[in-house]
């Protein structure tokens, strides 16, 4: 299996930052620097991801798990660190790219599905139009081809094709997530970020969405980073898991090992409370 992503010592600080930011924060303390009040959202985060692999990032709110994918997807600039994306024989130094290069990767090689569909979808335009946007950004300008591709994608994500011209506002929460997934998949990205995609959905809807994600992973061999606070999602989807607390990775390993033989006190508590 080929390596697709490698992150080294990624850090993200919100605020002015000071010399003691990293020394005074961490899993045993908090993520707010007592010296300057900056929020150390993530520090010294390193991991790698292989083609077709699903990596889970687990933690509670404030653990920095979403910060990691937001920076990789260029929603937020990284403060420090290095991230390499390997694609078609080229290496991209993600945190060194200019805006146009970022936009190109973001729109064609990465996909993102947000917990909040308002972040991933334009609610003023139709579901099909949302998918069309991604295809248009990627340079396709053939109306019929775009339309039939959008139709295929919606069918694939089990959204009725006859609803493709409706605006996402008319859809249920689960359906909105399906449209988001269809949009993310439009350009066959080798890397997909999923940020709490099932949080807040009904259990049966959650299950169906998780099924869909796994099917896609099997079919397309898409590498994914799944950010969640839900152990069930991790157990079902992730091959490997990182556990984060207050911006640090406190534990990393194969998902079954993290769940069956957790090493860190925090993870042990988390696993014990979920069973």
């Amino acid at each position: 299996m080929k390596k697709i992503l490698e992150v080294n010592s990624f850090s993200k600080v919100y605020g002015s930052g000071c010399d003691c930011c990293f020394a005074e924060t961490g899993p045993e303390r908090t993520n707010i620097c007592p010296g300057c009040g900056s929020v150390v959202a993530a520090h010294d985060v390193s991991f790698s991801l292989h083609q077709g692999e699903i990596l889970g990032i687990m933690g509670e709110s404030g653990s920095g798990k979403s910060t990691v994918v937001k920076s990789l997807f260029f929603d937020e600039p990284a403060s420090w660190g290095q991230a390499s994306f390997y694609d078609n024989g080229s290496r991209y130094d993600l945190f060194e790219l200019n805006r146009a290069q970022q936009r190109q990767l973001r729109s064609q090689r990465f996909g993102m599905v947000y917990q909040n569909p308002h972040l991933g979808l334009n609610f003023a335009i139709s579901a099909g139009g949302n998918i069309a946007e991604r295809l248009l950004v990627a340079g396709d300008s053939h109306y019929q081809r775009i339309r039939s591709r959008a139709q295929d994608l919606l069918q694939r994500t089990e959204v009725l094709p006859e609803r493709m011209d409706e605006i996402p506002r008319n859809f249920s929460g689960g359906m909105q997530q399906r449209v988001q997934i269809a949009k993310a998949l439009a350009t066959d990205p080798p890397l997909l970020f999923l940020d709490e995609v099932t949080t807040g959905l009904d259990l049966s809807v959650q299950a169906a969405i998780l099924d869909l994600i796994l099917e896609i992973q099997h079919e397309l061999q898409t590498a994914m980073i799944v950010v969640t606070h839900d152990l069930g999602v991790i157990r079902l989807l992730a091959d490997r898991t990182l556990v984060m607390k207050y911006g640090r990775i406190i534990e990393a390993g194969l998902t079954d090992q993290i769940l069956e033989d957790p090493q860190h006190a925090y993870t042990q508590r988390l696993v014990a409370s979920a069973l």
Partner: peptide, 22 residues
């Protein structure tokens, strides 16, 4: 401004797409 600089005009075509759909 950034969109003009990068000739990032896909969203104008999205508007045309929506027009044709509607």
């Amino acid at each position: 401004k950034a969109m003009h600089g990068e000739a990032d005009y896909a969203r104008l075509l999205v508007k045309l797409y929506e027009d044709i759909v509607k």
